[in-house]
């Protein structure tokens, strides 16, 4: 964006994790971890559609992109370069200062995600306009669904202080850090900004595993699904969704079958996207030259319509229930400390 242009007031904040949410990262073994640490910017690969989705979300000029990653601060240069290569402009990039944790002997903090991400999110929220709504993106590798949901409910004051205390204790957060989080939380004006929490299913965790977090958390198999939901939520327009789709088709081998299956998967899970097919149809029939490459239009519409018809009657959406964080404490623990399931 041109720096001389007056900036629009921030209406929306998109918060992204990096590894396994934006970047295709393997660090399940020590070897992979080392390889990831020494990768150059051009060697790092973004997850298909992620960059296109971010670019479209940023296009209106009234949003903010805040990235919080567990990657070490030493990787700032290479990560910044990678995002620049992908045409992604960010407003905040917070990385984990594990060297500081090491020097202070805070080994639990090196492993933990809750004690690191929650304060960062709260701090960022404190700087945001009260009316700005948020959409969060994480993955199924660590505790993103738990942390993001807790953050949303803390800002909305839907969770009590004793519960937050117990969660932070279970997540092995140091007591002085717990006090800091609570203090920070109390300073944030009450609001209910979090609209959606997208969880990229990097490990293909069954979606039902996230049912405890309610309808706000949407597990996704690809970023076309996120784009469809965001079209339903009016964060994106149909042409913008089509541009994400085109990137997936052109760069990652997506086709009518995989796209229409992704669409039907969301319908089966009760996401309110039935109307988006019509919006996509209108956009496809428009004059934009860029959509010529995804024609013939009738094939696309037929594929999506078939998937809708094939399902028969839509079941009622699940009833809203408050999240019982105490029953989900295991999700908050560092991965190495989780109970075997």
């Amino acid at each position: 964006m041109n720096e001389l242009e007056p900036k629009l007031p921030v209406r929306r904040i998109y918060r992204w994790d990096l590894d396994k949410t934006y970047l295709q990262t393997d660090f399940d073994t020590f070897r992979q971890l080392v390889r990831t640490a020494f990768q150059k910017a051009h060697e790092k690969k973004a997850i298909p559609g992620a960059a296109a989705l971010i670019r479209e979300l940023r296009a209106s000029g009234d949003s903010r992109l805040c990235i919080v990653s567990g990657s070490p601060t030493q990787m700032r240069t290479v990560l910044t370069e990678k995002l620049k290569l992908d045409g992604v402009e960010f407003d905040e990039l917070v990385l984990k200062d594990n060297l500081r944790n090491l020097v202070r002997g805070r080994f639990k903090a090196m492993r933990g995600q809750v004690g690191y991400k929650l304060p960062v999110l709260l701090e960022s929220r404190a700087r945001a306009p009260v009316e700005a709504e948020e959409v969060l993106f994480g993955d199924d590798a660590e505790a993103d669904a738990f942390i993001y949901s807790l953050y949303a409910d803390m800002v909305a004051h839907r969770v009590s202080e004793p519960v937050v205390h117990r969660v932070l204790e279970a997540a092995e957060v140091y007591s002085d850090d717990i006090e800091r989080v609570i203090k920070q939380w109390k300073e944030i004006p009450q609001a209910d900004p979090v609209r959606r929490i997208f969880i990229n299913l990097d490990r293909l965790t069954p979606p039902a595993a996230f049912a405890h977090y309610g309808a706000r958390v949407v597990p996704i198999f690809n970023y076309f699904q996120a784009a469809l939901v965001l079209l339903g939520d009016k964060h994106l327009t149909a042409p913008q969704v089509l541009r994400v789709m085109i990137e997936l088709v052109q760069t990652s081998g997506y086709n009518l079958l995989t796209l229409s299956n992704s669409f039907q998967d969301l319908l089966r899970r009760g996401l309110p996207i039935a109307g988006v097919a019509e919006a996509l149809l209108e956009a496809l029939q428009g004059p934009a030259a860029v959509f010529q490459m995804v024609r013939p239009v009738p094939d696309i519409i037929a594929a999506f319509s078939k998937r809708v018809v094939a399902l028969g009657a839509q079941p009622p959406p699940p009833k809203h229930r408050d999240i019982d964080y105490l029953s989900l404490l295991d999700d908050a623990r560092p991965r190495t400390h989780k109970k075997r399931r």
Binding site: L204, P206, N261, R269, P315
Partner: peptide, 24 residues
């Protein structure tokens, strides 16, 4: 469809490669 959805939500699968057709 209801039985399939219930079963599918509990197992690891690749949703991009799965479609459901309801038969009563």
């Amino acid at each position: 469809r209801a039985l399939i959805d219930q079963a599918l939500s509990q197992v690891k699968h690749h949703a991009e490669r799965v479609a459901v057709h309801h038969a009563a």
